[in-house]
């Protein structure tokens, strides 16, 4: 049941995506109860996840696309091979 801090933070990262197994969650919770350092890590990890979510929204608003010029270039290179 006891796990290292290394393992605990790894499970904690996995849990940010809600994908830790029941057993992993049990191990993590016991560890967090006993270890202050990992407790802080876990608390800050939640903040980081919120930040990444925020970033995700900003990032996904920026649409990226091929320019007319990119397409012409591609078109010419492809034509040369036809």
């Amino acid at each position: 049941m006891k796990i290292s801090c290394d393992k605990a933070t790894k499970i904690c990262d996995k849990q940010q995506y809600k994908e830790a197994s029941l057993w992993e969650k049990a191990q993590l919770n016991l560890h967090l109860f006993l270890c202050k350092k990992c407790g802080l890590y876990s608390k800050q990890n939640v903040v980081l996840t919120k930040c990444y979510n925020k970033y995700k929204n900003v990032e996904n608003r920026n649409t990226k696309c091929l320019s007319k010029e990119d397409k012409n270039q591609l078109e010419n290179k492809l034509k040369a091979k036809l």
Binding site: K64, L66, L74, L82
Partner: peptide, 14 residues
């Protein structure tokens, strides 16, 4: 193939 860029390049790029 002559239509590939026009029809599919945006989709493939995304």
């Amino acid at each position: 193939p002559t239509n590939w860029i026009e029809l599919h390049s945006d989709y493939l790029y995304n």
